[in-house]
Simulated assay, not measured.
Amino acid sequence: MSELLYKQFELTNIFIVRSLEGIEKEMLDVQPEGFNNNIRWHAGHILTVTEQFMFGFPKKSAHLPENYIELFGPGTKPSEWQGDAPSIEELTAQLKEQVIRIKDIPFERLDEKLKKPFLGLETFGELANMAVYHQSYHLGQVHAMKRVIANSAIKN
């Protein structure tokens, strides 16, 4: 079962990275009507929340800049960003590196009980499964935003 979970991380990461690498640069920071964020935010949010779930960022992981919490954490918005956000190239490189670190987590760790249940999840493996779901959800948002942005550009 644990091998399947890690394979799911790998596949999801491949789809996320392909989706982001194939995007037109002018689409990255467009916030279409009806959406709370933009595509760059979703890329950073996927990266940041996965790092929180899998590695305890920012307290237990130094693989991402600490300001990613302010940029991409839950409840954040690009309209409130202070300073520059990382480039999509930087975010995709960090996503590629992150999945390698995830696959290095020993299988035994998935059975570990969490110190405190989170969203009804009691083990690290359940939390990891939630991380993959979360990544897939935001990948879907990226795809939807790309279509909305492309369709609005065609009409204009």
Rank of each mutant, 00 (worst) to 15 (best):
E66P: 01
G73N: 09
F72P: 10
I88E: 07
W81E: 03
E70N: 08
E66G: 04
K96M: 04
S79R: 14
P65T: 14
N67K: 14
Q94T: 02
G75S: 08
I69W: 07
D84S: 13
A85W: 12
P74V: 09
I69D: 05
E70G: 04
T92V: 03
G75L: 07
K77E: 00
S79Y: 10
S79A: 15
A93V: 01
P74Q: 12
E90C: 05
D84M: 11
E70K: 06
P78F: 05
A85Q: 03
K77D: 10
A93R: 00
Y68P: 11
S79F: 13
S87Q: 01
G75A: 08
P65N: 14
P74M: 10
Q82R: 02
Q82T: 12
D84K: 14
E80P: 02
N67D: 15
L64F: 12
A62D: 15
L95H: 02
Y68N: 11
E89K: 01
G83T: 07
Q82Y: 05
P74S: 07
E70R: 05
H63I: 14
E90R: 05
I69V: 08
T76S: 12
D84Q: 09
I69Q: 13
L91E: 11
T92E: 08
Q82A: 06
S87T: 10
H63A: 11
L91I: 06
H63N: 12
T76E: 08
A93C: 03
L71C: 04
Q94E: 10
G73Q: 08
I88M: 03
E90Y: 06
P78R: 03
I88L: 12
E89S: 01
E66W: 04
H63T: 13
A62K: 15
P86L: 10
E89R: 00
P86A: 08
T76F: 05
E66V: 03
P74R: 13
P65A: 14
L95R: 03
G83E: 01
I88C: 11
L64E: 11
Q94L: 12
T76L: 01
L64W: 02
K77L: 15
